[in-house]
Design a protein around this nucleic acid. Structure first.
Length: 615
RNA sequence: AGGGGAUUGGUGUAACGGUAGCACGACUGACUCUGACUCAGUUAGUCUAGGUUCAAAUCCUAGAUCCCCUGCCA
């Protein structure tokens, strides 16, 4: 078997025209082996997409979120994996809400999940989409299958309370017990019907699978299949008062949808025997002459979660952050939720590239968050238009420039994309530069502005600082300077040899005071200051980064205020820029064209800051 | 104690008995109208101990370490 993805070696099922040389990860290897052996059969005519799928090996995956919270970057990995497989092998990808517990689930989450899955590229309704499904649509089928299991002596109604079950659970060497295990089948059948009919209160009884009370795998110690929950369900209303447990429900959901590879995370490895047992028990007494057909038996495969450093991901803790006001909501740009990183300015392309990069294995490893930052830098560097803005303005008056004169200069929209062209930016006597770009007593390797020093104003003129004005406290409030008119556009005039007559080491950004627009800029940093929040004290709250959000009033290029023809057409409608030398930013919905609000997605790499910090 | 997994440079990942490779980071340098980008180079690894073999990250034996498992959650 081939372990690389050359099209000619992938049984004709590889991605057409893919130049991707990355080796296959273990799940792709499983899929290719399955395809080679036709383990899952082939797509039939009615299932074909534009004629190209008929007869090709079936690959059908799904993403099965419970609608009880917002999706986070960990889920993103699962979505990319599952959708990626469907796309790569011309299969299908389902979005399925695993809504088996009405007491925890809310419709509020359903819409956000659909939006997030789509945003990430999980087009469950696209060419490789199998559609949208609900576990609750299978409640009747599940109930019928459960009845069959009872009839076959494979399940029974247990009247132990939750506490009793727990206390009788046993231990690794000591089997669990239930006095109801061997009750007559007819009695279980009757009680199970009564459970469904609503004749018993919550907790009075459960339906349990009859497997092995002595199993060292506790999941097999007669797990509960149904519990009584007199609670309205967002989808089925009050039609049901018994609800299936995950282990019982999940395999049936997969089976009914024809899922081939049921991919989940590592903690479900212990549940795989149960997954297989349930489907096997249903299929017992099926498939023979005069018997109903066997149901489809998908293969469960487990992989390790995406676990970024400096991040907390559990739904419970994310909910706590939202409810306690540590962040402003599920979509706070500091949140690791999909909604949060989207508002932060991350692109779906960056997230997908990241998921490809970190790979798919069974090793529980943590991923350095800088890889997230690098992923978005790499994408945005290629596509984001550039602009200038000053986060902490310092006024500069150009003494040899007429007060009322405006010069229009060419500004390159995106040096990485020549097709983006240029645009005009205004230059006037009063400009603002970044406070960090001036030092009165600079160290040796400071290439920026200082008294008597010359720098280049990006795309404008060479500028020399001629004077410093200070307030009573001794703070620099304004600079006097002159420009060299011969350097218009930012180039020194050519010398006798045709080369530039002189060089400046530093180039700084600036805005025209008269034209600049005031913007609220939210400078985000990591939410936590510890690599593993809570490791030190046991409480992640102790590792919150107090400086995770700093808001400044910046002065930015008016070009940013409203949508421009030279900008890319962002699929998600979120406008993103590079503020030159500062980082990548996106436009937040909190702002208006008159008073934009920008979120800093991430800074640029800054080797100067690193040097300066190290002395 | 029992069961299920995992272990390759700082981090992530490849190898499927036959040259330990790639990416990220870090460090040098080049280039540069973004101290960005780009480019070149350097750095550093098979958990341990035995064994099989001409040859072991890979197979065998013993051990170590880490993660998950006793919800009527998923």
């Amino acid at each position: 078997m081939s372990h690389t993805s050359r099209p000619e070696s992938s049984s004709g099922s590889g991605p057409a025209g893919s130049g991707d040389e990355k080796p296959l990860h273990f799940i792709e290897q499983i899929v290719e082996a399955d395809n080679a052996s036709s383990k899952w059969g082939v797509w039939k005519a009615g299932e074909a997409i534009s004629g190209q799928r008929e007869g090709a090996p079936r690959v059908h995956t799904r993403f099965p979120p419970e609608p009880n919270g917002y999706l986070h970057v960990g889920h993103a990995k699962s979505i990319c994996l599952n959708y990626g497989l469907a796309e790569r092998y011309a299969g299908k990808f389902n979005l399925r809400f695993d809504d088996t517990n009405p007491s925890k689930e809310e419709m509020e989450y359903v819409e956000s999940i659909k939006r997030d899955v789509r945003w990430l590229g999980g087009a469950y309704d696209g060419p490789f989409g199998g559609g949208l499904y609900w576990a609750s649509d299978y409640f009747q089928a599940m109930y019928d299958f459960a009845g069959e299991l009872v009839s076959k002596g494979r399940a029974y109604v247990c009247q132990l309370t939750a506490e009793e079950v727990s206390s009788r659970r046993g231990s690794p060497g000591v089997p669990a017990t239930s006095p109801y295990r061997d009750r007559p089948i007819e009695e279980s059948l009757r009680l199970f019907a009564e459970m469904k009919a609503g004749k018993h209160p919550n907790g009075a009884m459960t339906l349990r699978a009859k497997i092995d009370l002595a199993s060292p795998n506790f999941n097999l110690r007669d797990p509960v299949m149904y519990r009584i929950l007199h609670e309205a369900h967002h989808n089925t209303g009050t039609a049901w008062c018994i609800y299936p447990m995950y282990d019982w429900a999940h395999g049936i959901e997969d089976s009914l949808e024809g899922i081939t590879h049921s991919i989940c995370t590592l903690e479900f490895e212990d549940h795989r025997p149960l997954y297989d047992w349930f489907i096997g028990a249903i299929n017992e007494g099926r498939g023979g002459p005069g018997q109903p057909a066997k149901i489809h038996h998908p293969q469960q495969i487990e992989f390790a979660k995406y676990r970024p450093t400096y991040t907390v991901l559990s739904k419970r803790n994310l909910l706590k952050m939202v409810q306690s006001g540590i962040v402003k909501g599920w979509d706070d740009p500091r949140m690791p939720t999909v909604a949060g990183i989207r508002r932060r300015g991350y692109t779906p392309e960056a997230i997908r590239a990241l998921c490809r990069d970190v790979g798919v294995t069974k090793v529980e490893s943590s991923i350095d968050v800088v890889r997230q930052e690098n992923a978005v830098r790499e994408h945005l560097n290629k596509v984001a238009p550039r602009a200038m803005g000053v986060l902490r303005p310092l006024r500069v008056v150009i003494e040899n420039w007429p007060e009322d004169k405006t010069d229009l200069l060419d500004f390159v929209v995106n040096p990485e994309d020549p097709g983006a062209g240029t645009r005009k930016i205004p230059f006037t006597r009063d400009i603002y530069i970044e406070q960090d770009d001036f030092m009165e007593n600079p160290p040796k390797k400071f290439f920026r502005l200082a008294p008597g020093a010359e720098v280049r104003l990006r795309w404008a003129y060479f500028l020399t600082c001629t004077g410093v004005e200070k307030d009573a406290a001794g703070r620099v409030v304004c600079l006097r300077a002159t420009i060299d008119p011969a350097t218009r556009g930012g180039d020194a005039p050519p010398g006798p040899d045709g080369k530039p007559s002189r060089k400046v080491k530093g180039t700084i950004h600036w805005v025209s005071a008269k034209h600049a627009v005031e913007a609220e800029v939210r400078l985000y940093d990591r939410l936590f200051s510890a690599e593993e929040p809570g490791k030190r004290t046991g409480k992640w709250e102790d590792d919150l980064n107090p400086a995770s959000l700093e808001t400044v009033r910046a002065l930015v290029d008016p070009w940013l205020a409203s949508s421009q023809p030279q900008e890319p057409a962002w699929a998600d409608g979120i406008r993103r820029f590079q503020l030159e030398r500062l980082g990548y930013f996106c436009v937040d919905p909190d702002g208006t064209p008159h008073k934009p609000v920008l979120n800093r997605t991430t800074t640029l790499r800054d080797s100067w800051a690193k040097d300066a910090a190290q002395g």
